[in-house]
Design a protein around this nucleic acid. Sequence first.
DNA 1: GCATAAATGCAACAGTATTGCATTTATGAA
DNA 2: TTCATAAATGCAATACTGTTGCATTTATGC
Lengths: 140, 140
Amino acid sequence: MKQAKELLGEYGLRKTKCRLDILDLFLSHQQALAHADIEQVLGDRYDRVTIYRTLYSFKEQGLLHSINDISGAVKFALCQEACSQHQHYDNHIHFSCTQCGQTFCLNEVHIPAMTLPAGYSVHNLHFSAEGICKACNARE
Amino acid sequence: MKQAKELLGEYGLRKTKCRLDILDLFLSHQQALAHADIEQVLGDRYDRVTIYRTLYSFKEQGLLHSINDISGAVKFALCQEACSQHQHYDNHIHFSCTQCGQTFCLNEVHIPAMTLPAGYSVHNLHFSAEGICKACNARE
DNA sequence: GCATAAATGCAACAGTATTGCATTTATGAA
DNA sequence: TTCATAAATGCAATACTGTTGCATTTATGC
Ligand SMILES: [Mn+2]
Ligand SMILES: [Mn+2]
Ligand SMILES: [Zn+2]
Ligand SMILES: [Zn+2]
């Protein structure tokens, strides 16, 4: 797995303590993270506004994509493919576990093609599934 | 189209002025409505908290379903099929227009079947599309 | 090391949603 | 129709989420 430091370089982002720590969080977790999740871990070290702005910068540069979670919360996750500030390629499914509340990117499941009624121009598709995740199922 | 009054009766909801007016709004609009939309029309007549609680009651009884709109706003729309307080059957697509900001239920487009990786139990699927709606396309 | 632009921290603010409680209202039974 | 009761409402207070402006600090290239 790539180091936070070199990733920031690749994406044209300055290497600050806050950004390194936030990116490390994402690199060491498989799940999507909300601002509140990050604040819980790093809130005593960095201002909440800075965390917001960091997430926004990361998304802007194609390092993260945002997820409008089924719970209503906005979450963020690492982009898997070669996303850049010009184009995102995150056409995968998001799975939200109703038991543990975590959200995962299912990068291996692609969004199927669809035909909408005439008159509608589609620019983006978002597909999310809700249920019990792997870990919670295994725990029973 | 059914009258608001008889609908409230069918769904076991008391017939109050507020509920009748809010339900009338939904019956006379094809689009999904956010709390703010309703408040804009009825805010001088009913308290905003009452509007929140009305929407929640309607959803609870299976009269409305909520949509986590791509814009981040929570919107509500009439359930089409025989939804009840026990079970919702709203497995259709939601279309959000990036131009006019409106959200529509595309009840005629059903969500295709999908296979998720082993270990995940799926209980609900949510599919949303983003683009230019029929009306906005026609206007050009 | 230095100049500069970018990033940060802090305060203020706006929008959205929730809770508690007193008052009002809809409903079914008398 | 009246009445008792539970449900619905209005209002105030509060919490949560996100944004903006500005002074200060920091990373970066020279
Ligand atoms: Mn994702
Ligand atoms: Mn719908
Ligand atoms: Zn889980
Ligand atoms: Zn439109």
